[in-house]
Simulated scan of single mutants.
Amino acid sequence: MDNNLDQLERPAEIMRVLGHPVRLCIARGLIRENGCNVSFMQECLDIPQSTISQHIRSLKAAGIIEGERKGTEITYRVVSETAKDIIRILDLEEKK
């Protein structure tokens, strides 16, 4: 058994953040749509913008997503390959 727990810290943190259903749904949607803005997420999820913004902050803080500003709009994308792999393993990504 490999006892190097340090190398498991990052994947464990990503799984902890993705462990919330709304954050998992947001990450899955961002992968499917190849990025989108908060307004689009709000329409799809039918939850308040403030709630989505809180989840976005958690995903950004964990390094799972990044936002790109274009004018007044921010488009978010999943940048963590580990998060993408986890979602694929869970078979949550739309089949191509």
Rank of each mutant, 00 (worst) to 15 (best):
V38C: 04
E68T: 12
G63Y: 02
E13R: 15
Y76I: 13
T75Q: 04
C25D: 10
G63H: 05
C44H: 10
R16M: 08
S39M: 06
L24M: 14
E9I: 15
E43A: 12
G67S: 07
V38Q: 05
Q54V: 12
I87P: 00
G19K: 07
C36Y: 00
R10E: 11
E68H: 11
L24S: 13
H20E: 13
S58D: 13
E73W: 03
E68C: 09
I26H: 03
Q49W: 02
K70N: 12
E33F: 10
L45M: 15
G35S: 07
C44R: 14
C36T: 13
V22M: 09
N37L: 03
I52K: 07
Q49R: 15
E43W: 09
S50C: 07
V22H: 06
R16N: 05
S39C: 07
N37C: 13
L24P: 00
V22D: 02
G29W: 03
L45I: 08
I31E: 08
A12V: 11
G35Y: 06
I74W: 00
R28C: 12
I52T: 03
C25A: 15
I26S: 04
I87E: 00
Y76M: 09
E13F: 05
R69A: 15
R77W: 01
K84T: 10
P48A: 11
L90H: 03
M41W: 08
A62Y: 07
R57P: 00
V38R: 08
